[in-house]
Write a protein that binds this DNA or RNA. Structure first.
Length: 283
DNA sequence: CGGGACGCCTGTGAGC
DNA sequence: TGCTCACAGGCGTCCC
């Protein structure tokens, strides 16, 4: 479920409401992808700072009020939702008893943050800083943020020219630009009219520019839809429903292309499904 | 060193 | 109804 728009929408849903809270308790369920990396009790008493996002990771700063001169006790939690994770923030009141797939609770003075993840590909990892291990190691290979102004068409095109892999695979890898997961990578390539099997290095400058614009437009549109459905329903499941309605190729194998009528194809690239329209998307 | 395969887990839906 | 199998929106790690 979570690609960049979903993660960003999740962040916006609780960042302001939890900022300034003090941690009262931490509860761990079944192990996630990696161990927490610190005793859960060591988080109690810390203050929650401003939650930020990098790629599909969320960073929750947790600083302990200074206890003495020179005491450096900063740090935070790096969160990832994996394939099936979601985060829910519940203001005040009792946190519902944890279910089978609720693997992490951060109980604070302003409410509870709960990570639910049936497949447990997600992660919650303590790091002394965003730019120190282990967080920095995990973030090291991430490409540019899609809306970062420094990612110009020239920069994007130059990065693509160095790669020989298929353009869809490169988008998914996230080391040039982060955020376009399997759905949005397929949708952006459809919007750009580019065959997903095309070699990165063969993309012309105009087509690279168009692709970048389409990646941005696709993610922006998803953010817009997610935002509105969250406001209306406050239901994380509502967001995918909203975007599903707009998917032009993803999950539509065998169905006629909504633009030209050609049957949408499903192929496998790097062990992941790719959906595209052979009529609209050219090499 | 780039690029692809693997594995982590559980749930769900299709087909028999 | 119940079983088996393919597949699922991510990504770190390993191997060629």
């Amino acid at each position: 479920m979570p690609e960049l728009p979903e993660v960003e929408i999740t962040r916006r849903s609780f960042a302001e409401r939890i900022a300034g809270a003090r941690v009262l308790a931490v509860r761990l369920g079944s192990p996630l992808r990696w161990p927490l990396g610190c005793p859960p009790a060591s988080l109690v008493g810390r203050n929650v700072g401003s939650v930020t996002r990098r790629g599909k990771y969320l960073w929750v700063p947790l600083a302990r009020p200074a206890t003495g001169p020179g005491a450096d006790d900063s740090g935070g939690l790096l969160l990832h939702l994996g394939m099936s994770g979601s985060l829910a923030f519940t203001e005040a009141g009792e946190l519902a008893p944890p279910g089978k797939h609720d693997h992490f609770d951060l109980v604070t003075t302003r409410g509870g943050l709960r990570l639910t993840d049936p497949r447990r590909f997600g992660a919650v990892v303590w790091s002394p800083a965003l730019d120190a291990a282990p967080a920095a190691t995990l973030l090291a290979r991430l490409g540019a943020e899609p809306f970062d102004a420094s990612l110009t068409p020239t920069v994007f095109h130059a990065a693509l020219r160095l790669r020989r892999t298929a353009v869809k695979t490169a988008l998914l890898a996230g080391d040039i630009v982060v955020g376009a997961g399997n759905i949005y990578a397929c949708e952006a390539l459809f919007a750009a009219g580019i065959d997903p099997r095309m070699r990165c290095s063969n993309l012309s400058r105009p087509r690279a520019e168009r692709l970048l614009a389409c990646v941005r437009a696709t993610l922006a549109r998803a953010l817009e839809l997610g935002g509105s459905s969250l406001r209306d329903f406050r239901d994380t499941h509502g967001t995918d429903g909203a975007y599903q309605l707009e998917a032009r190729v993803y999950g539509r194998a065998g169905l006629p292309c909504l633009r030209c009528g050609t049957a949408v194809r499903r192929i496998v690239q790097a062990q992941r499904s790719t959906f595209f329209c052979p009529g609209c998307q050219k090499r």
